[in-house]
Amino acid sequence: MPLGFTAIYWRDMIKFARSKAMIFLSLLQPVLWLVFYGISMSNNTGLFFAGTSVAPPDAITVSYMTFITSGVIGMTILFTCLYSGQNLQFDKQYGLMKTIVVSPMPRSQILIGTTLSGITKCLIQTTIITLFGYILGAQLFAGFLLSNIITSAIGLILFSILFSAGLMFLSNMIGLKVNNHDVSQAIMALLTLPLFFASNALYPAETLPFTMKLLCYVNPLAYFIDSVRYFTIGPNFYAFGFNYQIGLEGLLSSFIALGIFALVMFVLAIFVIKNIRDF
């Protein structure tokens, strides 16, 4: 088995660990969302939904901060992964890619290495945001037994890996295909905005207009956030004036959707890297 991907992974992680400012800034954004948006919205949700509906007795009622911590985790992974694709673009721009592709290492190893480093970064960020959400009063894993917390954490890690892998394949593909830094920036911005807002990150997707709801159905971010809520809050809860019944079926459909997303992106990205000519 070729182990060239370990070299790529090792290099990415060295550079990541060294860029302390980058680590700080990449964590600052989600924290700012939680602090500014989370806290100010938390003080308003009661006002919005006073008397609109009543929490069903079998559902746990959770605060808005609890609700959007999951959304912010999804958003952070989305942003981190999509912008990571630019690393390959820089490798191409500075000619480093040429030094790699004249080696006998299969090109797919480049893809695997960068994807694994992207996943690692996302897992670190997810952990930190979860802790921070907790500090800000999000009721995560509330009322869980220790064994439940452990299985939930494992589930959270597995789904995060699946989601960030799909995103890393997608962003690497863009990084390899687009040679202009400004253009790829614009593409990323164009992708992140609709993916973020046509999802259940900040509000329930069920209340979205029809076309946005359709977008939500093919949006991997929405499926991922569902799974995060399943693991951190529970299968049946009430927030933002709405009763969420994700259940095991919801978790399973998230798994299938994210699996298909990762697989399709993997196949496409392998195709792109094998056929690219202008290193």
Binding site: P2, L3, G4, T6, A7, I8, W10, R11, I14, K15, R18, T99, I100, S103, P104, M105
Partner: peptide, 16 residues
């Protein structure tokens, strides 16, 4: 952003 040693280690690893 790599050192001399890291640069060579990286390429040695790539060549297995």
């Amino acid at each position: 952003d790599l050192t001399i040693w890291e640069t060579l280690e990286f390429h040695g690893k790539i060549h297995s």
